[in-house]
Simulated scan of single mutants.
Amino acid sequence: MTSELIISTYNSPRALLLTLLSVARQDVRPGSVCIADDGSGPETAAAIAAVQARYPDLPIRHVWHDDRGFEKNVILNKAIATSDADYLIFIDGDCLIHPGFIARHLEVARRDRFCSGSLIRLDDATTKSVTEVDVLEGRVFDIGWLRRSGALRRFTAWLKAAPLPKPVLAALEHVYPVGRNWCGGNGSAYRDAILAVNGLDETMKYGGGDKEFGIRLANSGVKGRHLRFTAPLVHLDHPRGYKDPEKIRAHRLKIAEARRTGKIWAEAGIRPPEPAA
């Protein structure tokens, strides 16, 4: 089984650099890395080139399109369509992944399953303080460091930092009462399963696109498996100027429709609609 890690990004070169450094120190690296770039400027390309120079044995490809506003689903579909890998793992370019992250996603991969994990969120001040050394030496996943940063105020956040043996955490995942929704910042599935539902809905912008995609996967027979506590990921804080309440309300209607109708296929997805006769 070949694998690729798809990282979505937009004009956040510092965060992307830190993310890629966390990829470089994985216990099991993905077969390749794809940067799904929603129209970033040259600083992002420079950050990718810097990591490639430091880690020439880490294959990275850069999929880019013009900046037309928030079109994450569009660039993700382009990355999926051009991938040669059997299994795809998705994170955002402001996420630092635990050394065992890729290995865990691959360990539980099944053709009738998608996997979806959780995030440990850093605040703005801690995000600005994170250094390359913090990532490379693993401090960002140290329980004491995370506690001092204020990221582990809740018991569930502490569990997300993987403080217990993996078999214990895996057992907790099976019984923990949480929805098996797709999380684009920590998710994975076989590429064939994604193509079978025509990828993500490109008409959906920020707010709900992940959930709608996961519902269609489940409707197709690919059910969710939550990696809530065994695939740790630290999320760097950032503003969300692209958040649009009106679009979010419209997306909720699409989510409800997908649930109600058992919808599988995205009309505006990887394969464009057939032209009218």
Rank of each mutant, 00 (worst) to 15 (best):
L217M: 11
R249V: 13
P232A: 10
L227H: 09
T230A: 12
I194N: 03
L233V: 13
L233D: 14
V222K: 02
R249C: 10
H238Q: 00
R216D: 04
D210N: 13
G199Y: 07
L236P: 00
M204A: 05
E212N: 04
N219R: 08
T203C: 14
L236M: 10
D244H: 12
R228F: 14
R249G: 02
L236T: 02
D237K: 04
D201R: 02
E202P: 06
L227Y: 05
D201H: 08
T203V: 06
A218K: 01
R225S: 12
R240N: 05
L195M: 15
N219Y: 02
G207P: 04
G241E: 10
G224Y: 01
G224C: 07
M204I: 15
R225Y: 14
Y242M: 13
K205D: 13
D192L: 10
L200G: 04
L236G: 01
K223Q: 15
G207M: 01
H226P: 07
E202S: 10
D237G: 07
G224N: 02
I215C: 06
F229A: 04
A193T: 07
E246Y: 03
K223E: 14
R228A: 15
I194R: 02
T203D: 14
G224Q: 07
K247P: 00
G199S: 10
K211R: 11
V222S: 01
I248N: 02
Y242P: 03
A231P: 01
P239V: 04
Y242N: 07
E202F: 12
A193K: 04
G214H: 08
K243G: 08
L195E: 15
P239C: 11
T230R: 03
E212I: 00
G214V: 11
H238G: 03
R225G: 09
E212K: 03
L217K: 05
A231F: 07
R240C: 09
K211E: 12
T230V: 14
E212W: 03
T203P: 08
H235F: 04
I248W: 06
G208Q: 15
G209F: 00
N198I: 09
R191G: 03
D192W: 09
V234D: 01
R225D: 14
R249F: 06
A250Q: 10
F213Q: 06
K247Q: 13
T230Y: 15
L195Q: 11
V234K: 01
H226D: 09
R191C: 01
G199P: 13
G214Y: 02
P239R: 04
K223Y: 08
D210T: 12
G199Q: 10
T230G: 09
T203M: 12
P245R: 12
L200H: 09
Y242T: 06
L200V: 09
E202C: 08
R240T: 13
K243N: 11
G224I: 01
D210L: 06
L233Y: 02
L236N: 04
V197E: 00
E246I: 05
P232H: 05
G208S: 09
H238N: 01
P245A: 15
A196C: 13
S220P: 03
I248M: 14
K211L: 11
N198A: 15
I194M: 12
K247Y: 13
A231K: 02
D210A: 13
H235L: 05
G221E: 06
I248V: 07
V222G: 01
G209P: 07
V222F: 05
P245N: 15
L195I: 10
P245G: 12
